[in-house]
Simulated scan of single mutants.
Amino acid sequence: MQEPRCGIPDLFNTNESTFHMVSHYSFFRGRSRWRKRSLKYSFNINVKEEAKPPLERALKEWANATPFRFFHVKQSSKAHIRISFLHGDHGDGLPFGTIKGGLAHAFGPNDGRVHFDADEKWASNGDKNAYDIQFVGLHELGHILGLGHSRIEKAVMYPIVDLGERKHLHEDDINGVKALYKF
């Protein structure tokens, strides 16, 4: 049985060279990062209204732990971060319904795409039979900020998630962002 996980590969579990490992956290290769601290985000029209508040809470949690500030814009063409719920093969090389696509995946700084598998069961109310949208969003936003996966199971950036599981930022997640951005 495959474990539900993020669609981004782990340097410490594969031969892929997507990440550069440092301590327990990792960065995207080349340590790509945003040059600004104010980032605009948008929701694709396929994002249900009930998914928006938990995703905004995830953005707020990163904002509370970092110098980043996030601002909602309606037009995705003006957004740095674009959040979507998509089905199957959606054209980015990480199709949902396969290990490759995972439950969700995000592309690093300066790309800003965050994709959730629309065919999964998502909730934010503690439903033990669904994936927690706020927690998975928090994880994927870590990728948006430039973090790879962590080896620490309690860290948000750990790549495997259980149904109903909710985590909050861990010291390792915050130390990773601080190391990447040097603040």
Rank of each mutant, 00 (worst) to 15 (best):
N46P: 03
N46S: 15
N46T: 15
N46M: 08
V47C: 12
V47G: 11
V47I: 14
V47D: 11
K48R: 15
K48T: 13
K48C: 10
K48G: 13
K48F: 09
E49A: 14
E49P: 01
E49N: 10
E49C: 01
E49M: 05
E50N: 05
E50T: 05
E50C: 00
E50V: 01
E50R: 01
A51Y: 15
A51R: 08
A51M: 14
K52L: 02
K52S: 03
P53N: 06
P53H: 07
P53K: 05
P53R: 05
P54R: 00
P54S: 01
P54N: 00
P54W: 00
P54T: 03
L55D: 09
L55Q: 09
E56W: 00
E56P: 03
E56R: 08
R57N: 14
R57Y: 06
R57K: 13
R57D: 13
A58Q: 01
A58W: 02
A58G: 02
A58M: 01
A58H: 01
L59Y: 01
K60M: 10
K60T: 10
E61T: 04
E61L: 08
W62D: 06
W62N: 07
W62H: 04
A63T: 11
A63H: 04
A63F: 07
N64R: 15
N64K: 15
N64H: 12
N64E: 15
A65D: 07
A65L: 09
A65V: 09
A65W: 11
A65P: 08
T66A: 04
T66D: 03
T66L: 06
P67F: 09
P67E: 10
P67Y: 08
P67C: 05
P67I: 04
P67Q: 03
F68G: 11
F68L: 13
F68S: 12
F68E: 10
F68K: 07
R69P: 07
R69I: 13
R69S: 15
R69D: 12
F70W: 05
F71A: 09
F71G: 02
F71P: 00
H72S: 13
H72Y: 15
H72T: 05
H72N: 13
V73R: 02
V73T: 14
V73Q: 03
K74Y: 09
Q75I: 00
Q75E: 14
S76Y: 02
S76N: 02
S76I: 04
S76R: 11
S76C: 05
S76A: 08
S77F: 02
S77N: 06
K78T: 07
K78M: 06
K78G: 00
K78D: 12
K78R: 13
K78N: 05
K78W: 04
A79N: 08
A79E: 06
A79F: 07
A79W: 04
